[in-house]
Computed example of a mutant assay.
Amino acid sequence: MEYRQIPANAVPRLINRLRLKHWALLAALAETRTLHEAATRISVTQPSATKMLADIEQAFQFPLFERHSRGLRPTSLGEEVVGYARQSQASLARFIEGLEVKRRGGHGQLVIGAIMGAAPDLVARAVAQIKQQRPLLNIRMVGETSDQISTSLERHDIELAVGRFSSLLQHNLFDFTPLSNEVMQVVVRRGHALVRQKKLPLAALMDWPWILQPVTSPARHLLEEEFARARLSTPANIIECASVFATLQLLQTSDAVAALPESVVRDHVKAGLLRALPIPIGSDLKGFGILTRKGEPLSEIAATFVSLLHQFAEPAAVPAPRRGRRQAPASP
C-alpha cells in the first residue's frame, strides 16, 4: 500500500468509518501481534479480522503494520495509531466500570499505581482519608515496582502513580512531583545465623541466597551498584520476585536475604518475624513522588487524592544528611 497525503476531510471520514470494534482489534494486535489471536480476543473470525484491518488501513490511507512470518509489526505511524487504540480501549473500560459503580450506587472510581515502599504509609493514609470523605468511591491499586507502574501509566491502565522514573527518558512521558524518601533495610528471618554476627560487611552475605527485585526496577539498579562498589558480583543463588507479599513469605520460611523499604518490613521487624542487619544501603536512590502523564489533566477525584498525598508527605520531610555514610532513600 502506498503512502498518500492525508486529505483535509480525514478526521470526519475516520470517525465515520472506524467503529469500536476496529479500535478493539488494533488494541488486541498491540498485545498479540497475530490476527488469529487478536480475532479470538475480540470474538470475531480471522477472515473478519483480516477484512477489518484492511478497512482500517484503507481509512487511514497508509499501512499500519508490516507483515512478517511471525506476525504483524507496527510501522512508525502504526505505532501512533496502535498507541491511541490501546489508550482509547483502556479509557472506555474505565468509563464503563465507573458507570457500573455509579449504577450500583457508588460515586466514581480511582485507579492508581504505587511502589511497595510508598504503599504502607503514605498511600495507605491517603486512601483511608479519601475513603472517609467518599465512602462509596471505588479505588483500585496496582503495581509493586516503579517499572511496572510506569508501564501501566503509559498504557493508560492507571490515572496516576506513586513511584519514580525507571528509565532515563521517562521524563519525556511523565511529570514528576517529589513526595518523600525511604530507608532501605537488609533483612533476614528471626533465628538466621547472620543475626548473631555483630560486624557484617556486604561480602559476608554473598554465599547466602538472595531475593532480588527484577533488574528493571530502580532498587535493583541501586543494589547492583552497591555490589559493584564493594567489588562483588551479583549473588549466584537468587530468586527474582516483584511481589512484596511473596518476598516477605519467602524471607520468613528460608535463609534468604533481601533489601526492602523500612516501611514494608517495619511491622515484621517489630513483631520479631524478621531481623534487620546492620548494613547501610540505598544512599544513592532518589526519592519517590507522583507520576502523571504529560499534558493530561487529572480528574477531580485524582486531584483530590494527590492533594492528600502531599498533605501526608509534609510531616515526613527528608532529614538533613548525617555525617559520614548516610543511610538514605529507597524503595522499589
Rank of each mutant, 00 (worst) to 15 (best):
R196A: 13
A246S: 09
D207V: 05
L274K: 04
T50N: 07
R103P: 00
L277G: 11
A30D: 11
L179C: 05
Q61C: 03
H156G: 01
Q46N: 04
D55T: 13
I158H: 06
R164N: 03
L20S: 06
I301F: 00
S76W: 04
F288D: 08
L137Y: 04
T32D: 13
V215F: 08
L285G: 04
A276I: 14
A8I: 14
A317K: 10
P261K: 01
V195E: 14
L232G: 03
E262Y: 08
S69Q: 07
Q89G: 00
N237Q: 11
I239F: 06
K286A: 15
P120N: 05
L273R: 15
L26C: 01
T50D: 01
S88V: 03
E66D: 06
L14Q: 12
S43L: 07
L53S: 02
K199F: 06
S167Y: 10
E296I: 15
A317V: 10
L122D: 01
V187C: 11
I239L: 15
K51Q: 14
E144L: 07
T304L: 12
Q129E: 08
I15N: 03
L223A: 10
P47F: 01
K21N: 04
R140H: 08
D255E: 11
P74N: 03
I112K: 08
A203E: 08
Q133L: 12
